[in-house]
Nucleic acid binder design. Structure first.
Length: 431
RNA sequence: GGAGGGAUGGCAGAGUGGACGAUUGCGGUGGUCUUGAAAACCAUUGAGCCGCAAGGCUCCGGGGGUUCGAAUCCCUCUCCCUCCGCCA
């Protein structure tokens, strides 16, 4: 949520940002402004009445103490009380209207974000590593996975539905190994504290991070219990501090979490239909930071570096892309995507998204810190990034480390997490 | 699922109709003392909104009600805790 003062003082900027993001409805800004004016007019009126009431209450108390008769003044106050009640309820209605509108307005992009409506305008920041050379035509991971009997798409779809996959044998082991490999790196080398949060979260938590109310269609709901399956650990982990006040000295707080993630992928029919790139359920290690406002964009750089390290050490080739205004997530002020090379598909695929949300989420979730100098509480800045998506890493490893005989090499960094396994081959008696 | 208890400031925890925006303790900040620190002592310290300001208004889990006036009384919702039952 934006600061209403920003909308008041600079409505044209907010409108421009909405258009830059590819939004069409800048009318919300005007509707917020109209309601804001009405709210303040009513406040002036009702506060004057309340002032009268408070004065009268004092008089009545004084009169009663002296045993005097207060019936006249009491009668007049009855009328004023009724008036207050009716204006108060109108003020509340307008405030609800304003909040409802404000929740639909996206964050303001940072000045360094390239302007553009789609991914064409994204800017490649750097490349890391090199794409492997093959003397043969590399296969797609879904073919490799089925041939090695580590991915079973048929069974996954039978158990649940399409876009659910059954991992088997070395595939399941690699999934688990990657989780541990990433968590260990972030906790022992990058200074994050590991947490394991609830996988279902309340609508209030979803509103705090910006997934609700706007993206309700993308979520799996448990309607009977008014809970939602999380689409990313960002939701529960950021909400750890909802409605809390941290001490300035406690910042930055850095958490990392492994969780399953659930997305309905509404509107992505026909995209990445094969393989494990786009699943309704996938695993992810996430990093979340709560930081001082002065440091947030530096923290974004180091967060991104932390994610890059995961890929570098696995020997994967990737590029870092700065997203343009149109590609930026709703809550983000700035975002880098890490796109890993997929040898089989011959293209880069997003494997991590590292974002700085400035105070946008903190305002919605009411996460503040108390300055050490004793000043008023201020909103923290929040950041998060995948560190990284597990399923897509499995796909990348299969495709980039495949041999001409269909086996797949396990990179050295992962071997200790896979009982020393150096190569994945088809089991003798697959079942 | 059944029975009961609770929700007050950064935290803990008093407060049963007007003198309470709220006793007190902890924590925070400033100071005295000290070579420095700790301890001790003194002072100070809630948040939000409206307003150029002076100042005003609101807030004791949410909503509604009673009343001239509600942290306090009534209704309702949510959440938390305890005991019993069931279950990993």
């Amino acid at each position: 949520m934006l600061d209403i003062k920003l909308i008041r003082d600079n409505p044209e900027l907010v409108k421009k940002d909405i258009l830059d993001r590819g939004g069409k409805d800048t009318g919300v800004v005007d509707r917020v402004l109209e309601s804001d004016v009405r709210r303040r007019e009513m406040l002036v009126e009702v506060e004057e009445l309340k002032h009268q009431r408070n004065k009268a209450s004092e008089e009545i108390a004084a009169l009663k103490k002296e045993g005097g008769d207060a019936s006249g003044i009491v009668g007049r106050m009855k009328e004023i009380s009724e008036k207050i009640k009716s204006i108060d309820s109108r003020v509340r209605d307008v405030e609800v209207d304003i909040r409802t509108l404000m929740l639909e307005i996206p964050n303001v992009p940072d000045g360094s974000v390239p302007t553009g409506l789609d991914e064409e305008a994204n800017i490649e920041i750097r490349l890391s590593g090199e794409a492997p050379n093959f003397t043969f035509k590399p296969k797609a991971h879904w073919d490799l996975g089925e041939e090695l009997d580590v991915l079973d798409f048929e069974r996954g779809a039978k158990i649940a539905k399409a876009r659910f996959t059954l991992l088997k044998g070395a595939g399941a082991l690699m999934e688990r190994a990657l989780i541990n490999y990433m968590l260990d790196m972030h906790t022992t080398e990058h200074g994050y504290t590991e947490v394991f949060p609830p996988i279902l979260a309340s609508p209030a938590s979803f509103e705090g991070t910006g997934q609700l109310p706007k993206f309700s269609e993308d979520m799996f709901w448990c309607r009977n219990d008014d809970l939602l399956l999380i689409p990313t650990a960002e939701v529960p982990v950021t909400n750890i501090f909802r409605d809390e006040v941290l001490k300035e000295a406690e910042l930055p707080v850095k958490y990392t979490a492994y969780t399953p993630c659930f997305r309905r992928e509404a509107g992505s029919y026909g995209k990445d239909v094969r393989g494990i790139i786009r699943q309704h359920q996938f695993n992810k290690v996430e990093m979340v930071k709560f930081v001082h406002p002065d440091t947030s964009f530096d923290e974004l750089e180091s967060l991104t570096a932390d994610a890059e390290e995961v890929l570098s050490r696995l020997g994967l080739h990737f590029r870092v892309v700065a997203l343009c205004t149109g590609d930026l997530g709703f809550s983000a002020a700035k975002c880098y995507d890490l796109e890993v090379w997929m040898a089989g598909a011959g293209e880069y695929k997003e494997i991590s998204s590292c974002s700085c949300f400035t105070d946008f989420q903190a305002r919605r979730a009411n996460i503040r810190f108390k300055p050490s100098d004793g000043g008023k509480p201020r909103f923290v800045h929040t950041l998060n990034g995948s560190g990284v998506a597990i399923g897509r890493t499995v796909a990348a490893l299969l495709e980039n480390y495949q041999l001409d005989d269909g086996r797949v090499v396990v990179p050295p960094a992962l071997q200790p997490y896979m009982h020393g396994m150096t190569v994945i081959e088809k089991p003798a008696n697959p079942i």
